[in-house]
Design a protein around this nucleic acid. Structure first.
Lengths: 217, 217
DNA sequence: AGAGTACATCTTGGATCCAAGAAGGGATGG
DNA sequence: CCATCCCTTCTTGGATCCAAGATGTACTCT
């Protein structure tokens, strides 16, 4: 039987720490990681660090060059486009492939989320606002109730997050526009008009991440 | 130990070997892996084995229970359904989201593949036939020219492959039907009728994978 | 002086050592 | 006779040791 272990292995802690450093920009793409440095900084030996690096490599965060070191992967322009396109595919996957009740339920939920978006935009709480928009887009995938796709989607968003961290904050005063586009997406979702939804979503994603992709890479 | 190729680290070889063992059924779901056993069998120390296990864990093949060992993951019924659904989402992603020329080109290519399917079905070359059908379905994703999605798709197929290896039942006499359904899919793709394509694809995948809830087609 | 080479140093990869914990078995008590 | 507890043994996780390769520098030869 599987019982929960009392003590968490060091490799888990190291992996979690490195992962959070990757997500908050402490370790940015192009950085070269030293096992010695990490092990001394985390007060463990090189063994758990190596295990964590292997995992992060398999997760697509790093590329390990034999005898040379671990490099934090930087997405190419083509890969960044592919990530955005993949997001678009997943978010529009269930527009016309889910029951009417589920779709109606989703739309009321989305409406609530947009209302909260507007409140937070008024309050100027940008951090919450960003999280809210992430949840908004994620909801289009959640409705499919497919944990495999959802996990992959989260992976895509993490990659995008790292890319945006690289660019100097440029999202400032377009919240009104975003909210309007979000409302439009919900309307199209409600009517089940897949064709229009796809094009609107593409414009929205390209309009949001396009500058990031174009300016910086 | 000293004559190992200097360009390829041992951990790479171990990882590749374990991966192939997972794909050919030598290591089947539910198996418990022993580091000592693997290291002696592969004539390396436990160190590269551990690294390979970490990578395989991150790739979703194993779950490592601390202080207990590595278990080859067995997909639950719900996960198997999710994988099949995810495949369906990806294969139908570009039915109406790609240029007419690309779609026409794809369809002629698919027609050729079905012709070769029939040839091989006549010859009774089932191994080639299975690979051909895999290529057939993959082509629907390839047309999107999205390496990120394609890699994910391959991952899904690998998981399905392992599941089919688990089931002793082999589908042998339904090739005519499969070919007919494939022709139908190409027709729907050619007209760009997404609605019908999705339902036909769902029936096809469920019809083939449902009975054993492993894979086939 | 410039280029090529040899060396010194640093880092990673593999092997080994040691400790902690989990599984199994046997003894003991109810 | 069965359940519980302890002890032995085995496996994994972490730390350390050693070797091989890569980098950078300084020296030498033309």
């Amino acid at each position: 039987m599987e019982t929960t272990s009392k003590t968490e292995p060091a490799v888990e802690r190291v992996h979690a720490q490195l992962r959070s450093w990757l997500l908050d920009g402490t370790l940015s793409p192009g950085a070269m990681l030293s096992e010695n440095d990490l092990s001394s900084r985390l007060a463990v030996s090189r063994t758990p660090v190596r295990g964590a690096l292997r995992r992060l490599e398999a997760e697509g965060w790093l590329t390990i060059y034999p005898k040379r070191g671990a490099l934090v992967r930087r997405l190419s322009f083509e890969e960044a486009l592919a990530v955005a396109d993949a997001r678009q595919v997943l978010e529009s996957a269930y527009v016309d492939a889910v029951s009417d009740e589920a779709r109606a339920e989703l739309c009321t939920r989305l409406d609530r989320m947009i209302d909260e978006e507007q409140d937070e935009a008024r309050d100027g709480d940008y951090v919450k606002l960003v999280n809210r928009t992430i949840d908004f887009h994620r909801a289009f995938v959640e409705v499919g109730e497919n944990p495999v796709l959802l996990q992959f989607y989260d992976h895509l968003r993490e990659r995008q997050l790292v890319m945006t961290l690289q660019t100097p904050a440029r999202v400032t005063g377009r919240w009104e526009e975003f909210t309007r586009e979000h409302r439009n997406l919900v309307d199209l979702m409600r009517t089940g008009d897949r064709e229009s939804f796809v094009t609107a979503l593409r414009d929205h994603i390209v309009g949001t991440h396009g500058p990031v992709l174009g300016i910086r890479c």
